[in-house]
Structure formats: structure tokens, C-alpha cells
Amino acid sequence: MTHDEHSSHHILPIRVYVTVFVLLMVLLVLTYVAALQNFGILNNVVALTIAVVKALLVILYFMHVRFSTRLTWIYAAAGFVWFLLLFIAFGDYWTRNLNVPAPKQWEPPITLTQPKISDSDHGH
């Protein structure tokens, strides 16, 4: 066995795992307690932050990413970064019914015979 030569063979002392587990339990309680409070618009932020911290603890310590090669880091991060790319779709939902009126001074150079673009038309 080549234990100490390689990072992923690195054996953590068991108290690291116990500490992480205790932290997770504290955060679990915190998750519930936080859900009962009202932070206004920060409600979701608080809930998700706690979840992210919990996930990070699991990923970094239980899944040993913290002690892994750079390659593992990259792949572990890539999944979550790409997951966020999906949320580009929200650009659509937030602006789908948005109407920006044309500048007031602007006049068409020629008189259009067709009906002008009305407010109900979102430009699809």
C-alpha cells in the first residue's frame, strides 16, 4: 500500500468526520428554526445559504474533495456551475411581459399604414 504518497489515500482523523457531522446536525436545526422566522425578502436566501453550507460540508469533507486532486475540484465545481447556467432561462421569465416604451420624441420617418405596435404585443 502506498498510503502517504497519494493525496486521496490520505486518512483523516475520525474526529474530522465527527465534527462535520455535529455541524451538519446544528445546521439541520438551524434550517428548521430559520424557516420559522421572517426575514422578509431574504427568506429564500437564508434557507438556501444554509443548504449550500450543508452541501459544501458534505462535498468538501465527506466526499474528500478538499483533499483531492485539482481535477476532482474542477469536475465537482463544473457540475454546479453548469447547473446555474440553466437559470439563464429566468432572463426570459423576468422580461417576457416587460414593455419598454419607445422614446417619446421618436417619429417614424414615413407614416405607417399598418397598425402601430400596441401595448399588448410583446414582440413575439
Binding site: 453548469w82 439563464i88 432572463g91 411581459n97 416587460l98 410583446h122 413575439h124
Partner: peptide
């Protein structure tokens, strides 16, 4: 390639700003 998918949906009801 992952940032351009919306060009399939220009007339599908997607926001024109998007």
C-alpha cells in the same frame, strides 16, 4: 454552445429581450 439555446425560440413566445 451552452449559452445560445434561445435562438431556437425567437418566435416561440420567449421574451424578446432574452
Amino acid at each position: 454552445g451552452f449559452l445560445v439555446w434561445g435562438h431556437h425560440m425567437f418566435i416561440a413566445g420567449q421574451s424578446m429581450y432574452q
